[in-house]
Write a protein that binds this DNA or RNA. Structure first.
Length: 755
DNA sequence: GCAGGTACTTAGGATCGAGTCT
DNA sequence: AGACTCGATCCTAAGTACCTGC
């Protein structure tokens, strides 16, 4: 369990690899990164510098003029460039000309200039050819925005935080909820704090006062009862507690596929051996001979037993959880009690990365108090470490938002305990994010014009930057930071795309200049998309790929920090990810406008909302594995629909006969009967429709996850405004947690809100 | 520029548990 | 009442971004 893993790098079968102490990892990084090395790239660049379409030469004068203009308009143009331009200029011009000559020779000259691609077809979502049309921000300089100054987002009715700071956090302990045996939803009289009506901190201070109770540690390991045995090579073997605990981690995962994977087993076994006593280590040399069967069965039985517990027992557990939540789940920040997101420390276990992770199966160490850094204010009551232990450190840094941190042993990265999304500190940031995206909306046309211009640049790095930015904008790709090879699964984003990730088709299915993307993105989710691009982009891609190996970087002169530096110059606060936020939100708004019709009833409107949401999810490539029970649940729904249809037919029949009856009898009673039958038919029709809508929705959603975009990319004010406009209760769109997170938006957005 | 480190957001899957169905 | 279903919540990995010090 515990312990120091960095000692003896013992003689394990697979043991030659340095695995822990991350300080060592650079050792091979160097080698592995060779192929990306810039030396190589520079040479390559030199040899073909300026390679470009034919029309560049004819445009040259024009372009230079354009450039001049550009500079004036946007004085900042590019400091980075300025620095390097001079020294490279001559060299470049030379090779540029050569290149053009070459181009003509090899018949690579381009047909006449092509105007920009159709604007309404700007987005190309992966997988689905469905196009997410939207106008390109015709409403760019919407009058509404003008008066608002960016900085004054919460201009509205700024009270001052100062005020209640002065009251100094007496606030008392949270009044005991102890007494509530029966849930009476005794919501505190303290009505919700509207932090969005207060002034914000500037200058990077995140809080003035912070007090909390520290983390909740994982429960200590409980050794297995003696009847649960472990066998090696068919023989019973009693393991030391440390080795046993690690063995149970494996046993618990036994029916998971990855315990069959070589890397997983290798990593596990190596780390497991480190926890063994030397006798154990001498004896246990082959994982294949280990029999975890009894352990595994024991845990299965345990979980069955847990399910079978009586109401009272379950209630007991629930209450205990509630107690812990009340005690540790909140902190006091600047006079307000705020919910903590993850106050429980991650328990030890076997690391499961996503995708093809080189470290899968490694032992994730148990975190102890001496690993923990506490952050709180000086004048607060510092949380007590468990008896007999000490914190690693207590600090008072109000320039950060975290309450607790520790370093995790797999990648050596830092983990944090932070506040819930409903908290002021998270909410403000979220709000700000959407404000930045809205500012982008105002200047996106200019930026687009600029990068299109840059496709013609004579500098390779500028062209690459411009093409990459085009992808980020058009396809909502992620930035694509560099990663350490061999430390994580091999995934990429825009800037880290490699030649092997795209294919160029001058002509494909009747479209010209098609680029096919096929790569693994974040979380090893596949991005597959075929998209027609502008000719100039296409030609540039050909140029970027010339003389490269499949595993060379497509944008060898670019990385995220160069790109972001450039973006920063185009707009204050602009980074690559802002495009994702912007495009997601603007797409939602535009799709909602397009899809919602006044006549529809509420379920149909909600279907429209979900479709708009779905368009965004597709754009952002938010996929999910089809739920295991998908087919079945679809069938269930279908049979419900069938049943409802029958019911409707019956009801109609009855109505008909009631009508006939009424015609004959002409009395009040039979007329009433007709009326009520009519009502029944109506009601059933409605129910049927609701079911059908539900089925459509579910089917369309099979492999698409809406949650991520809803939670992270869509300006909630758009949704709130939509709800208000159409009289839809927000509860239909946002569940309780979501409403908590977006309380600010729900409170402030009116039905005419425009992103 | 670049490597290393830190802080914070975004992400999909596992698990939980309330509600519904039989 | 027990089985089942499905959305909500939990979990924590995997991104982005930016800072610092050379």
């Amino acid at each position: 369990m515990s312990g120091d893993h960095s000692h003896n790098e013992d003689q394990i079968d697979c043991g030659s690899r340095v695995n822990d102490s991350h300080k060592h990892k650079d050792k091979y990084k160097e080698k592995e990164h060779k192929h990306k090395d810039h030396k190589k790239d520079k040479e390559r660049e030199k040899s073909k510098y300026g390679n470009s379409d034919h029309k560049d030469s004819s445009d040259k004068k024009h372009r230079d003029k354009e450039k001049e203009k550009m500079k004036h308009k946007d004085g900042s143009t590019d400091k980075y460039k300025e620095k390097h331009k001079e020294k490279r200029k001559e060299e470049k011009m030379k090779s540029f000309d050569e290149k053009i000559k070459k181009e003509k020779e090899n018949g690579f000259a381009s047909p006449p200039y092509m105007k920009s691609e159709p604007e309404d077809d700007f987005y190309h979502s992966p997988k689905h050819e469905r196009s997410l049309k939207r106008e390109r921000d015709v409403d760019d300089n919407d009058a509404e925005f003008k008066p608002k100054k960016i900085k004054t987002e919460n201009d509205k009715k700024a009270k001052k935080r100062k005020q209640d700071e002065d009251i100094k956090s007496k606030k008392t302990k949270h009044k005991k909820e102890v007494t509530d045996g029966k849930k009476k939803a005794k919501k505190e009289p303290e009505e919700k704090w509207k932090w969005w009506e207060e002034e914000r901190y500037t200058d990077g201070v995140k809080w003035k006062f912070l007090e909390h109770k520290g983390p909740v540690f994982a429960p200590a390991y409980e050794p297995l009862p003696s009847h649960v045995k472990f066998y090696y090579d068919g023989k019973h073997m009693k393991l030391s507690p440390e080795a046993e605990e690690v063995a149970t981690f494996f046993a618990k995962m036994l029916d998971h596929e990855y315990t069959t994977k070589d890397i997983f087993r290798k990593n596990f076994f190596k780390d497991w051996r480190k926890e063994m006593t030397s006798e154990e280590r001498a004896k246990l040399t082959d994982l294949k001979k280990c029999d975890f069967g009894e352990m595994s069965n024991y845990f299965k039985a345990q979980s069955e037993a847990r399910k079978a517990m009586s109401k009272e027992e379950k209630q007991k557990i629930k209450e205990e959880n509630e107690r812990i939540l009340q005690q540790y789940g909140f902190c006091l920040m600047d006079n307000h009690k705020e919910r903590i997101a993850n106050f429980r420390i991650e328990p030890p276990g076997l690391f499961r990365g996503r995708g093809d992770h080189p470290k899968m199966g490694m032992l994730k160490r148990r975190i102890r108090p001496q690993d923990i850094i506490i952050n709180c204010s000086k004048d607060s009551k510092v949380p007590e470490p468990p008896p007999g232990t000490k914190w690693k450190e207590v600090r008072h840094d109000n320039k950060v938002t975290w309450l607790v941190s520790w370093t995790e042993n797999i990648q050596g990265s830092i983990k944090y305990i932070m506040l819930n999304p409903s908290s002021r500190i998270k909410g403000e940031k979220d709000w700000q994010k959407y404000e930045t995206a809205r500012r982008l909306k105002k200047c996106v046309d200019r930026i687009r014009a600029q990068y299109r211009e840059d496709w013609k640049s004579k500098e390779m790095r500028i062209r690459q930057r411009a093409v990459a930015l085009y992808f980020i904008d058009k396809l909502a790709l992620r930035a694509g930071n560099e990663k350490e090879e061999g430390e994580t699964a091999d995934t990429v984003g825009c800037c880290s795309l490699r030649v092997e990730h795209i294919k160029l088709y001058p002509e494909n299915e009747g479209q010209e200049y098609v680029v096919e993307f096929d790569f693994l993105g974040k979380d090893s989710i596949r991005y597959y998309n075929r998209v027609p691009v502008e000719k100039r982009v296409f030609k540039n891609l050909q140029l970027f790929m010339e003389n490269k190996e499949p595993d060379d970087d497509l944008f060898d002169r670019l990385n995220t920090s160069i790109l972001n530096k450039h973006l920063q110059e185009l707009m204050d606060g602009l980074t690559a990810k802002v495009f994702r936020t912007y495009n997601a939100s603007i797409t939602l708004q535009q799709q909602l406008k397009e899809l919602t019709t006044a006549e529809e009833n509420i379920p149909a409107k909600i279907l429209s909302y979900n479709r708009a949401n779905r368009a965004v999810a597709i754009l952002c490539n938010h996929q999910r594995a089809p739920p295991k029970t998908f087919e079945k649940s679809m069938q269930n729904l279908q049979s419900k629909i069938d049943a409802k249809r029958d019911q409707l037919a019956d009801a109609k029949r009855e109505l008909k006969s009631a009508k006939a009856d009424a015609k004959v009898r002409k009395d009040e009673k039979s007329k009433k009967a007709v009326e009520s039958k009519k009502k029944a038919v109506q009601r059933i029709e409605e129910q049927l429709m609701k079911l059908e809508v539900q089925a459509t929705d579910r089917e369309e959603n099979k492999q698409i996850a809406l949650g991520t975009s809803k939670l992270n990319y869509l300006d909630p004010r758009i949704s709130v405004a939509w709800c208000k406009k159409w009289g839809i209760p927000v509860e239909k769109i946002y569940n309780k947690t979501q409403r908590e997170k977006f309380a600010w938006a729900i409170d402030m957005a009116e039905d005419d809100y425009e992103f």
